[in-house]
Design a protein around this nucleic acid. Structure first.
Lengths: 117, 117
DNA sequence: CGGTATCCAAACCGATACTG
DNA sequence: CAGTATCGGTTTGGATACCG
């Protein structure tokens, strides 16, 4: 697989985008992220965060206190990535109507038994 | 799921990016794409192309000749999308060394039983 | 040539239970 | 609070065989 694919992968993964978007606004604690994003399991959030940390996109700041407190912050690389991905997501959102129209046309075309133009 | 996710999904899917990149250069026939991309099964290529066509990113031009000849071309929307995604992929490629370094540091950190800073 | 249909293995992901 | 471990359902995707 092309090397960049490995990065694009988590950058565009289901939860990766949402984590990046949340952190683009400000740092978050683990449960804050979980509540903020909504619908993500602890497992997936932890996994996503680990991958992002591993690749240098987020910084994990674990404070040795009780109860534990861990803050996640974007690194410089992570901020750049988040901005890129966020821009793409925004562009995509603007195209939603056009895509919806294309889908409708496509479905109608397929539904039609034959003929017509 | 957020609506834009559905579009981002195929735009950033394993083969979607590669198809868009290939078509960004020029139109391709089905088997041309298959050879060009390499490693993609007929099934996945067909599926990818159908999704992209359905959403209005590529135009499918089937000529009623024997043997069959089908050309795939980017639509305006598809070209925009391809450029965006391609730009992101290029940016990603430039960051590969930085990410590799981050990974190495991360792995070394994990390998270390304790101490040091 | 340009697909579709079927089968099967692997990966993904959520729910749950448990730990430091 | 911030995770890890395990299990099982769902989805994904490749190989193969076949059709127009």
């Amino acid at each position: 697989m092309c090397p960049s694919r490995l990065i694009l992968e988590h950058v565009t993964s289901r939860w990766g985008v949402l984590v990046l978007a949340a952190l683009l606004e400000r740092s978050h604690r683990f449960s804050e992220l979980r509540r903020r994003i909504g619908g993500v399991s602890e497992k997936m959030l932890a996994q996503t965060l680990q991958t992002l940390e591993r690749d240098g996109f987020v910084h994990r700041d674990a404070k040795p206190v009780i109860p534990p407190r861990v803050d996640y912050t974007l690194t410089g690389l992570g901020r750049e990535a988040a901005e890129q991905v966020w821009a793409l997501a925004r562009w995509t959102e603007r195209q939603v109507p056009e895509v919806a129209a294309a889908r409708a046309a496509y479905d109608e075309e397929k539904a039609r038994p034959a003929a017509t133009a």
